[in-house]
């Protein structure tokens, strides 16, 4: 195992994050605060409670997931796409590093960053709403698994993308809608019966539901299914990355 290489990639990516703290850390905090003001205060004053939880608190897990998902994808995809774009990827490809080590370095750094953002948002939310975490261990487990699997997805997108437009395509057209429609700001039980069925096809619903369960003990789908869903997703992403490096798809000619 080339630990030095993993360390070099990881530190390089983390340094990139901290070189741009405004973009990396402050902007998610500000947008979260805005969500609290708009959804929590303005709309929340009309909704009051969802299944016994104040609306402001109810949306916290969804908000964290929203940021964690989009940040994981954008960070990991940019982290690998940019060296590909400017050609600096040559040194990673010509170094004595395995696919596994490259992935651990890039995805590990992207996941670390989105984990930090998730925690920062959680801490920010303590200033706005009264919130308690019922199952902290599970909360961390869900958060870490989500950071890792969506950073893997972002990593794949970064390898797949041939230009900056493609880099934005999946986050904008697929992931953001799925998060908004996945119960980030409402409970699936609030939907009309037909939509309750349709929403079950949204994979993000399982994530948000499981994560919300770790806070309040309530969920749209059984927590076991949520855990299974995210684990399967993680495994699928890992296999995809393994296949990419085995074949050199879009990296080596």
């Amino acid at each position: 195992m080339n630990w030095q290489a993993i360390r070099a990639i990881y530190l390089f990516e983390m340094a990139r994050t901290f070189r741009t703290p405004t973009q990396s850390l402050i902007s998610p905090v500000i947008s979260t605060a805005l969500y609290f003001i708009v959804f929590g205060s303005a709309i929340g004053s009309r909704i009051q409670e969802v299944e016994g939880v104040s609306y402001g608190a109810f949306i916290v897990p969804g908000l964290i997931m929203l940021s964690v998902l989009t940040q994981s994808i954008s960070n990991a995809s940019f982290g690998i796409y940019f060296p590909k774009f400017i050609g600096a990827i040559y040194e990673v490809l010509s170094a004595p590093v395995s696919a596994f080590e490259i992935t651990v370095g890039y995805v590990g750094a992207a996941a670390t960053k989105s984990f930090i953002i998730g925690i920062v948002i959680l801490i920010t939310s303590f200033f706005f709403v009264d919130i308690q975490v019922a199952h902290p261990v599970w909360m961390f487990a869900f958060l870490i698994l989500t950071c890792l699997s969506f950073s893997l997805l972002g990593f794949i997108i970064g390898i797949w993308a041939r230009n900056f437009e493609q880099l934005q395509l999946i986050p904008l057209l697929v992931v953001t809608p799925l998060v908004f429609l996945g119960g980030a700001f409402y409970s699936a039980s609030m939907l009309p019966p037909l939509w309750q069925k349709i929403t079950l096809f949204n994979p993000v619903l399982y994530l948000i539901s499981g994560f919300r369960w770790s806070f309040f003990g309530l969920s749209d789908v059984p927590v076991g299914i949520s855990l299974a869903a995210i684990t399967v997703f993680f495994a699928v992403m890992l296999s995809a990355v393994w296949w990419i490096f085995r074949t050199g798809w879009r990296i080596k000619t």
Binding site: N2, W3, Q4, A5, R7, A8, I9, L11, F12, A15, E91, V92, A95, P96, V97
Partner: peptide, 14 residues
């Protein structure tokens, strides 16, 4: 200096 350090690390050197 950082970019040179980075390459050295990639090649597994302390």
């Amino acid at each position: 200096m950082n970019t040179v350090r980075f390459t050295r690390g990639l090649f597994g050197q302390r």
